[in-house]
Amino acid sequence: MISRFILLLFVLTVTVKGIGQENLRVLTFNIWDPADIPFWEKHAHGYPVDQLIHYLTEDNADVLLLQEVSLEKPPHQQSYEIIKKHLSSKGYLYSAFYKPNGTTGYAPNSDNSGYPLAVFSRFPIEETFATQETKEKKMSKGVLGIKIRVKAKSLYIFNTHLSIGNHTTDDEISKVALPFINKVTGDDMVIFAGDFNSPPASEYPNTSKRIGDYTYSSQTTQFLLDAHFNDAWAILPKGNKKGNGISCPGQDDYIKRVDQIYFRGKGLKPTLAFAKHNLWDTINLVDHNGVVVNFVLD
């Protein structure tokens, strides 16, 4: 009788623990600037929105972090509004958008600006946060964040797209993005992801490499590790990862994993990670692949 009671108590404990957990799946993806009109008209007869929407939703992610969500003229052809409409029908009812200063230079006389950032969520967004600069440094594309609530707990999720070359990416992280995120989140749980255009320090500690016109350094992402962020891909055991995590197969090995997802905070734990297939292989564009991480929140 006692052994049966102990067994029942164990089952109840495991069940209650399971009930207390919540899964959250996050996708980050650089969608390759829809405002690059000459490219898309030449290779795909216009930006393939339907293919993009399928790619974003096929893995059932709860939060989508997108980079290069550029704007076009006229307003009814703006990619953000088109993507937003499609995703809303798929259950992503909440979104945030940030347009930094600057011009992309792709479309003549265009108002599109600075490779904007967008976040789409199935969870209600309580607050949004965005910045591009401090007194010390101005980022080229900025950082965009949202606050959602999962199991009555606050969770902050930030999206960014850094410049190219560590002469700018180091300062973008250390002097703008990290101070801003730390001020907003305090000790709460936070996920920070995007296109870092830098090698992961978890795989290439204390290294730098010149590739073409730029020098890339793991110091950029080392700032995140020093601020107690964890690289979700690196921290997971092999059995919890699919593939090799490469998100930029067309790049040098040193920067093949530039799209990264970091996390920090008690009660937030990754359980699965994978890099998606290449959305653009039919037009021979070897660029970013989406990266997905599944989290459990206790």
Rank of each mutant, 00 (worst) to 15 (best):
I2F: 09
L7E: 11
L9G: 07
V14F: 04
V14T: 10
G18W: 05
G20H: 05
G20N: 10
G20S: 06
G20L: 14
Q21L: 13
N23Q: 12
L24Y: 00
L24M: 13
V26N: 01
F29R: 11
N30P: 09
I31R: 03
D36I: 03
F39N: 12
V49N: 06
V49D: 09
V49R: 07
D50P: 08
T57A: 14
D62A: 11
V63M: 04
L64I: 14
L66R: 02
E68I: 01
E68P: 05
V69R: 04
L71Q: 06
L71E: 08
K73Q: 08
Y80Q: 01
Y80A: 00
K84G: 00
K90Y: 15
L93K: 12
A96E: 00
F97S: 05
P100V: 12
G102C: 06
S110P: 03
S121I: 06
F123N: 08
E127I: 02
T134N: 03
G142S: 11
G145Q: 03
K147C: 10
I148D: 12
R149E: 14
A152D: 15
S154D: 14
S154G: 04
I157T: 02
I164P: 00
G165M: 04
N166I: 04
T168V: 13
E172G: 08
S174G: 01
S174I: 09
K175C: 07
K183C: 05
G194V: 00
F196T: 12
N197I: 01
P200H: 09
Y204N: 06
T207M: 10
R210S: 13
T215P: 05
S218F: 03
Q219E: 07
L225Q: 06
D231Q: 05
A232W: 04
L236C: 13
L236N: 10
G239T: 15
G239Q: 15
C248W: 15
Q251V: 00
Q251G: 05
D253S: 08
D253I: 07
R264D: 01
G265L: 12
L268G: 04
K269P: 04
L272V: 13
F274L: 15
T282R: 07
T282S: 09
D287K: 10
N289P: 13
V291M: 15
V291P: 05
V293H: 13
V293Q: 06
V293R: 08
D298I: 08
